[in-house]
Simulated assay, not measured.
Amino acid sequence: MKNTRNKVHSVLQILVVFFGAIVFAISSQVFAQDAAALRIKQLEEHLQSMQTGMQAMQSELEKLKSQSTQVTQKIERIEHKESSVETNQEGSKRNMVFFRGGFAHSSQHRNGLVFQSDVVPAGVQDQPDKNAWYFGAGFDWNLTRNAWGLAPKTSVLAELMIEYKEFSSHVKGNALANMPTQLVGGAQNPHSVTVSQLSIYAAPKIKFMEGSRLRPWIIPAGFGMHIISPPGESASFFIPGVVFGGGLEYRVWKDFYAGIDARYHITGGKKDGIDVDGVTAGGYLGIGF
């Protein structure tokens, strides 16, 4: 009887252990499932939070993009307004047409075919005065407003100009300007000869103080071609040379200017006995365009 009781007790212990193991296994599995579910839930919440953050970032990026577009449009409008203001602003025109006039002086007396002739030294042999009056016109074409980035507020322009000088219109000529010519025994009856000179210039012009009403300028060196009348004794009409100059210009009203200038013309000596070196000094009126 005792043995039977012990066996029953042993069987009960085994069953208790077995059922305990089963309960522990089930509990562990349930706990594991709960932990996994909690982890999954946390991951879902984290992903949801990331998605919300990305949506917020995308919204901010859209706002920034919109703001950037608005800023760009504002800048373009401002630049357009500035361009319109600069276009309409008084004195904003870059180019100019001008008209000059004044006094000219030659370094030597003129010598030519019909007066003061070395080939035909007969007749009155008169000479014109060294002084003359001149008038001319030209235009400045603006190349840059800051000397290609080398000097701020310094404009470089290309000047093209034509100029007429008249030394005298009553110079008495020699035998070749006599009617009839004294070479065939005619009486002394000399014609009056007009002594004049036409000059064409092409030169760089540098203007300082861009934006100011008063602007000084210089011509460091330019090319000049002088056409003389009467011609030289060997029928020479054209004399090339170099011109240097400087002046001061003032914007009077809108795009209308007034200025003074002085220029020195040099040709490197006489050509067929004629020397046209000299200076001019006077004023000019300009219109911007």
Rank of each mutant, 00 (worst) to 15 (best):
F99C: 03
L198K: 05
S168D: 09
V276E: 11
D255I: 00
T69R: 09
G232K: 01
G247F: 01
I22Y: 07
Q188G: 10
F103D: 13
R39M: 02
G259Y: 01
G224H: 00
F99I: 11
F244N: 09
N189D: 15
A147Q: 01
Q29G: 13
N178I: 04
F256N: 13
V193K: 15
P180I: 08
A175F: 01
K207L: 02
D129C: 00
P230M: 00
N111Y: 09
S106V: 09
L61N: 15
H105A: 08
I206R: 10
L12H: 15
H80I: 10
N142L: 03
Y257A: 01
F167E: 03
S169P: 04
S27V: 06
N6Y: 11
E90C: 00
K270S: 15
R215Q: 12
F19I: 11
Q42N: 09
S199F: 03
A35T: 15
Y284K: 06
A151Q: 01
S168K: 05
Q42S: 07
A21K: 10
A25W: 07
D277P: 00
I78S: 13
L38E: 14
V23C: 05
S68N: 07
Q125N: 15
G211V: 02
D118F: 02
R263Q: 12
D255T: 02
S10Q: 11
K254C: 14
Y250A: 07
G149D: 14
V119Y: 12
R213S: 09
F237Y: 14
I227V: 08
T181L: 01
G102P: 00
N189W: 08
G101R: 01
V120A: 10
P216S: 06
V97Y: 11
S199K: 03
R251N: 12
G288Q: 00
R215F: 00
F98G: 00
H109W: 07
P190G: 08
G91H: 05
A281I: 12
A281F: 10
R5V: 12
H170M: 04
D277E: 11
H46Q: 06
M96V: 14
F139T: 13
Q127I: 07
S236I: 13
I228C: 05
G186C: 02
V23A: 08
A37L: 04
A56C: 06
S106A: 11
N189S: 14
T4I: 02
Y164L: 05
G136F: 01
A35S: 13
L47Y: 09
P230S: 05
R94F: 06
I22V: 11
Q89M: 04
S27K: 01
D277F: 00
P220K: 12
K130M: 06
F31S: 13
G91Q: 05
K74A: 12
G273D: 09
Q182G: 10
T4P: 02
M179I: 13
N174S: 07
N146Q: 03
T267W: 03
T181N: 08
M225N: 15
K205F: 06
V17S: 14
K153F: 05
G186L: 00
E62W: 01
E76L: 07
Q58N: 11
S192R: 06
R145F: 09
V71G: 08
N88E: 05
F18Q: 14
M96Q: 14
I218V: 14
G173S: 11
S169K: 08
I78P: 13
D34H: 05
I287Y: 09
V120C: 07
V97I: 14
A56K: 06
K254V: 15
A158Q: 03
M57L: 07
Y257K: 02
H105I: 10
V85E: 14
Q188S: 14
S84G: 13
G278E: 07
